[in-house]
Simulated assay, not measured.
Amino acid sequence: SYASRRADLEASKDDDEEWDDEMPIWASIAQSTEGVEIQPSNAPPHSRNQSTTAFTEPSLGFTSATKLAHVGGWNPSNSNDHDSMEYEATLMGERITQLYLDPLSASILRTGLRRAVRRKVRKNGDVTDFGMMHLASSTPDFIPLWAKTSELERNSSLWLKTNTVEDELLIDDSMEERLLGKVKSAWMIEMWTQEDTLRSIESELDVSPGDVHHRVDLMGWLLAAGQQVLLTDDVFSEEHLPVIGEIATEIDMLRQRVRHGCKSDLLQLVNIKHVGRARARELAGLNIRTPKDVVRMNRSVRNTLLSKRGWGPLLLDKIHAEVDKVLHRQSTSHSNERIPKIRDDDIPLSDESSSDN
């Protein structure tokens, strides 16, 4: 009847609804898991008493990336710094960064080069090209060769080489196997600068041509970096600057020899375009050692060169043209040096008094 239906409706209004259509199904399932509770969005966040550590509060002026005002911006908080605290890169650190050098490599180069300067000043030890190459091969930026099992024996050629150059080394190594590997690397570069062929290097040290060229590039870069580290180091007094300049010149010459793979007497020739170490040695065999000697080449020498393998009239014309460009550029630079002009208005008057200013 109508009265019974009305009574049922009034009874249903007194019951509270315990379900929520806005709650997703996954939240309802997660709520049934022990330890998980649903927190209303308008409820205050649960605070934790976190201790201040190096991970929660950066110090020494560093700010975490999440606390920056905007991407690409820098708005550091100075609350943890003293007002007078400033950070500035040293000259050595700035130079190392510009050279893209590993800081450990720079430290090794600096230690070895300081020992080289002290040897030169005290004259109690030799500073050789092999010592410089071994120093560069001892850095983490270089990829040293590994000594084979047969080379670890006491009577091997690598072992004898290591004992021979022991006094020339500028850096020590505690592990014997690693020392032999670095000496082998320096020995390989030394053979390259002594104009040994890639085939002879491979037969002697079992190193492929690709490995030779890769390490030659690394050695040239590290020698140039070592020269900059030496010139930037400021621990020595001014009276030792000539010694530092002498070592820097030796490093630069060694770097050029490593780059071209030749002895020092060919450096003027290998800098000519189209002339490598093999052609330069053939020119030196005909008593041609400078660019001016190339220009003064007579007909008989020219015919002798043309009779050799790999030489032709077109190649000789190109070499002559390159030498003419270099010599013309040098003569032009010297002629452009302005001679001080004598001005009439600089001549003092007869009654003009002299002045100290």
Rank of each mutant, 00 (worst) to 15 (best):
Y2W: 12
A3E: 14
S4A: 13
A7T: 10
A11Y: 01
S12C: 06
D15G: 02
E18C: 00
W26S: 13
S28R: 15
A30K: 05
Q31V: 06
E34G: 04
Q39R: 12
Q39E: 09
S41D: 08
H46W: 05
T53H: 12
A54W: 07
S59Q: 15
G61A: 08
T66K: 15
K67Y: 13
L68N: 06
G73W: 04
G73Y: 00
D81I: 12
H82I: 06
T90F: 11
M92G: 08
R95W: 02
Q98L: 14
D102M: 03
I108K: 08
L109P: 01
L109I: 01
T111A: 15
R115V: 06
R118V: 13
R122F: 08
R122H: 08
N124P: 03
V127Y: 00
G131E: 01
M133I: 14
A136G: 04
T139G: 00
T139M: 00
D141R: 06
D141E: 14
P144G: 10
P144K: 04
K148M: 11
S150W: 07
L152C: 09
S157M: 11
T164E: 13
E168R: 05
L170M: 10
E177V: 15
E177P: 03
E177N: 13
E177T: 15
L180G: 01
I189E: 03
W192D: 02
T193G: 00
E195W: 00
D196F: 10
T197A: 06
L198P: 03
S203N: 14
S203P: 00
D206M: 12
D211W: 06
V212W: 09
R215T: 04
V216Y: 03
M219D: 02
G220K: 04
W221G: 02
A224N: 12
G226D: 07
Q227E: 15
Q227F: 00
T232K: 07
D233K: 08
V235K: 12
S237T: 15
V243E: 11
E246A: 09
E246M: 05
E250W: 05
D252W: 06
M253W: 03
Q256C: 08
V258P: 02
H260I: 01
C262Q: 04
K263F: 05
S264W: 09
I272T: 09
I272S: 01
K273H: 12
K273F: 09
K273P: 04
R281I: 01
E282P: 00
L283T: 00
T290L: 11
N298D: 15
N298P: 04
R299G: 04
V301Q: 14
R302G: 06
K308M: 15
G310D: 06
G312W: 01
H320G: 02
E322K: 11
V323Q: 02
V326G: 03
S331I: 03
H334L: 15
H334W: 07
I339A: 10
R343A: 08
P348E: 03
S350G: 05
S350W: 08
S355Q: 03
D356C: 04
